[in-house]
Amino acid sequence: MMDRLKQMNPVFLVLLLLFVAIAILSPYFLQPTGYMNFLKRAAPIAILAVGQLYVINSGGFDLSAGALVTLTVIGSSILLDGEASATWWVILAMLGVGVTVGTVNALVVSWLRVPSIIATLGMMITLSGIALTWSGGAPRGYLPENFRFFGRFLIKDLPLIKILPVAVIVMIVVCALLWWLMHRTNYGKRLIAMGDNPKAALLAGVPLTQTRIVAFAMSSISAVIAGILLGGFAGVSTDVGVGLELQAITAAVIGGAQLLGGRGTVGATIAGALVLQAMFTLLNILGFPKPVRDVVQGLILISAVVIAGYRRRRSGG
């Protein structure tokens, strides 16, 4: 029993402690509407973090994810402008943009040998520029109700849980598919092998470029889906995705993902996203302003990276 506890990822214990603290300070959290609304708010960052995990496990970073979230919201609102009948083709178009962005990121890294942090930083600036130019720097257009359905609709009058946000269903489905692809397919094995040692993986016959393309595509598709949910939550905003890429990286690292070298798991990354959201919730309950939240997020990221590096040195990895 003790051995199992020692082997358990500490992120789950931290999450439990945060839940207890929130419940003590705000008993509403223990009610079905309380924890379901918490999961609803956490859904976009959880999806974004799991997508980011694919790139981290490949040995890189994707700093363009937040800008792609913004472009998804702004682009969808302008293309739709309240026209509900166009919702599905606009969603498909945005997913196509996500695949294109991910593919370009991967090809720049693979073919031009540009470090992923530089390549995706350039893509982030490009996407932000496109979004601001397209919108004129201010919210434009309108998101119809059937587009906002994914982010704001609640299934009500259910037994036990009473309500079930559609955003939570989207999170479960997307994260389950990404878990299956990473942990139950040969692709996932190739991804981890590439992240651990690219040269050895290449010698073993792993197609590095194709593997990297899928990883970056999963990250970009996740960003588009997160953007759709966030557009449903709060409507159109020109800064909706600002900083989300760092939150996603932080969540993955909290979950135990090793930067620049594989070995992260989807389940622990989701727990890391919930820890981050729980931390923000706790700070809000305690009345701390947003700048304090940013400081705490930065300290968490630095601490998690230091701890991960220490563990890796001890294990000889």
Results as ranks from 00 to 15, higher is better:
residue 26 S to E: 12
residue 28 Y to D: 14
residue 29 F to V: 07
residue 30 L to D: 00
residue 30 L to F: 11
residue 34 G to Y: 01
residue 36 M to T: 15
residue 40 K to M: 06
residue 41 R to A: 06
residue 42 A to R: 13
residue 43 A to E: 04
residue 45 I to A: 08
residue 45 I to R: 14
residue 46 A to S: 08
residue 46 A to G: 01
residue 47 I to S: 09
residue 50 V to S: 03
residue 53 L to H: 03
residue 57 N to K: 08
residue 60 G to N: 08
residue 61 F to H: 05
residue 63 L to R: 13
residue 63 L to Y: 05
residue 66 G to E: 07
residue 67 A to L: 06
residue 68 L to H: 09
residue 69 V to Y: 12
residue 69 V to H: 08
residue 71 L to F: 14
residue 73 V to N: 03
residue 74 I to L: 11
residue 75 G to D: 09
residue 75 G to F: 07
residue 76 S to N: 03
residue 79 L to R: 11
residue 79 L to G: 12
residue 81 D to V: 05
residue 81 D to C: 04
residue 82 G to E: 10
residue 82 G to D: 09
residue 85 S to N: 11
residue 88 W to T: 12
residue 89 W to L: 15
residue 90 V to N: 07
residue 90 V to G: 09
residue 91 I to W: 13
residue 92 L to W: 02
residue 93 A to M: 15
residue 94 M to P: 11
residue 94 M to T: 10
residue 94 M to K: 09
residue 95 L to C: 01
residue 95 L to M: 13
residue 97 V to S: 02
residue 97 V to Y: 07
residue 97 V to Q: 14
residue 98 G to Q: 10
residue 99 V to Y: 01
residue 99 V to R: 11
residue 99 V to P: 01
residue 100 T to S: 06
residue 102 G to K: 10
residue 102 G to H: 08
residue 102 G to I: 06
residue 103 T to I: 10
residue 104 V to I: 15
residue 105 N to M: 05
residue 105 N to Y: 11
residue 106 A to C: 06
residue 106 A to H: 03
residue 108 V to T: 13
residue 108 V to L: 13
residue 108 V to H: 04
residue 109 V to A: 01
residue 112 L to S: 08
residue 114 V to K: 04
